[in-house]
Nucleic acid binder design. Structure first.
Lengths: 199, 199
DNA sequence: CCTACCGATCGGTAGG
DNA sequence: CCTACCGATCGGTAGG
């Protein structure tokens, strides 16, 4: 019974967080009220605080859980003993698959993390810069081994990559015929080979 | 005197809007209060309403003024009698130059437009889809003439392009050595030719 | 999970 | 551009 209560309580907390993600995605964190969220769940605003400590705690869960998934995905790719363009491709596919598993949380992760308060915002940004740098390392590796052009601007390349990746939740249609892995492949191909014929 | 009053009044309104853009960029529109804005200008919150009608009117100015600049830039490029990859490159350079002229307003345009109310939000989104479609036409033209691969996903290509373009205000350092036109050239080159050597 | 409620803050107006 | 102020709404707590 104690166990069941705990399980139910956890599960209800998850429900609250998932509904909150939908709300934050549509209206933005700052414009979303706890009364909005309560209404979506069919309860009173005050009742939310049985499950969560504060509005920001929800945002923290969403942002750091996604960050963990991204990190795990990249660590798998880094272990692979393949060339830089293959590694970059797999990193891109992994990132897109993590996003596709929860497009709503991904959009919140991207657009609302700035509303984290200290020290969470700082921690979050450190995780992000670390992640970006690890992709930059893959690109630099590719330049060293001669797979990629020496003339490319590595900062520009990695920023372009992340811009493309991170906006995907805003336009990707989960009901379209294209699966996340294929989307990742195409995106990687476009970035590596370009639009031009005979690339 | 009447003329001078009007000029001063216009200029003060511009100051209010520019300060508001800075505030909205940092805190987001919803989390920015009129009292914050007033403090930045050294006046009382109520005094703002001598210059603007409402908080949202400021957002409308920022979003639609930027949209106009983007449209004008693209219209110039469309007149050019050049190939698709050259036209795409010039469109990218133009877009980046418009953003670079006012990075603050560009960031607000990108991240805060969703807080526009009806019917402004709808009008804004229509302008945006039109702009995107005109870039898509350039890409389709390039596929037809054989400049670009037939295998590319045009929607993905144009979305990747806009993701890259629109995130530029978030990481571009206006005090860096790289000028906007060169940044545009490099971005266009990366997209058209890719990262791979012998592209 | 609810009722009842709190202090703080919001965008905006009246009147000068 | 200011003082004085309004009704609405905010995140959150007490106590059950």
């Amino acid at each position: 019974m104690g166990t069941l209560d705990t399980l139910n309580s956890l599960s209800r907390k998850e429900q609250v967080i998932r509904k909150a993600a939908e709300l934050f995605r549509i209206k933005g964190y700052a414009a979303s009220s706890m009364r909005d969220l309560a209404q979506m769940l069919g309860i009173e605003a005050a009742s939310l605080y049985s499950h969560i400590r504060s509005k920001e705690e929800i945002l923290q869960s969403l942002c750091f859980d996604m960050a963990t998934e991204f990190r795990k995905s990249l660590e798998e790719v880094e272990k692979q003993n393949v060339g830089a363009s293959e590694k970059l491709k797999n990193g891109i596919i992994g990132h897109i698959q993590v996003m596709a598993k929860d497009l709503t949380a991904s959009a919140v992760f991207m657009n609302e993390h700035r509303h984290l308060s200290a020290p969470f915002l700082r921690d979050f940004l450190l995780l992000r810069i670390n992640y970006i740098n690890r992709f930059k390392n893959i690109i630099e590796e590719g330049v060293k081994t001669g797979e990629f052009k020496e003339s490319i601007d590595k900062k520009l390349a990695v920023m372009t990559l992340f811009s493309s990746l991170n906006w995907m939740p805003q336009w990707y249609d989960p009901y379209s015929h294209i699966v996340p892995a294929d989307l990742g492949k195409q995106l990687a191909d476009m970035l590596v080979n370009g639009l031009k014929k005979e690339g």
